[in-house]
Amino acid sequence: MNEIGGIPLFYLEFGDIVAYFSPFTLALFLLALVFSVFVIVSRPERQIDIAFGADAFFAKDISLAELRFRRFMAIACGLACMGAMVTGDVFDFTLFVSLVGICNVGIVAAVKNHHVQDAAYQYGLVALAGTVPLFSAAAIVVTTTGSLSMLELASPGAPAVPLIARALLVLGVMGEGMAPFYAAKAEMFRAPGAPYVIMCSLSSLLIFLRVTEVVLLL
């Protein structure tokens, strides 16, 4: 097969869906795993607001319920990332990426701040719209080649995947939380609680890295 990410070290078979660990996917998987562990063990940071024009500051308090909910979302996001990193099936990959998208919305939607919620809502709409190109891409891949398995599609002699399917896949991943839309996340970063919010950017980065491999592999 086309060895973009190195020779797969071992395979994990779930019926028709085969997850594979090549040096590339394994490295990304471990990164997601380590960060998920960090999220589990760390305490959230408290944001300090300085009162303008006065010699005063106050720390934003994070309730226990909010902390637990956001930690749960961040762990779920980490697990979704791990799945998206190693799965060897195009449709399964799109599902994991959608899961990353909705978890990212959940991490910020828990914050009780109108601006943050507004940003989370707009971002959630993009994540929802992003599933359209994602699923379309997977459907076009299977219709034109007869297979969803990346390993089959990467092997020599497999039918060519149309360029439009790859373009749709990349656009869909962008919609689920990606580079050009990054600036908008500044609003989201006003949300207090450091390790959880960083999970959003890390997951975006990871799925972006993985989709480049997928697109080159097909």
């Binding site: 449709f91 599902l95 959608s98 909705i102 919305v105 959940g106 939607a109 109108h114 919620q117 507004d118 989370a120 809502y121 959630g124 709409l125 994540a127 929802l128 599933t131 699923f135 997977a138 459907a139 299977v142």
Partner: peptide, 26 residues
């Protein structure tokens, strides 16, 4: 195709549920 439609449909409904609740709160 029929088996793939089901996850596709459910993902849409699920995100709609969360977003509509977020809309109400917002």
């Amino acid at each position: 195709a029929e088996a793939l439609i089901l996850p596709g449909l459910v993902v849409g409904i699920a995100e709609l549920l969360a977003l509509s609740q977020l809309f109400i709160a917002k």
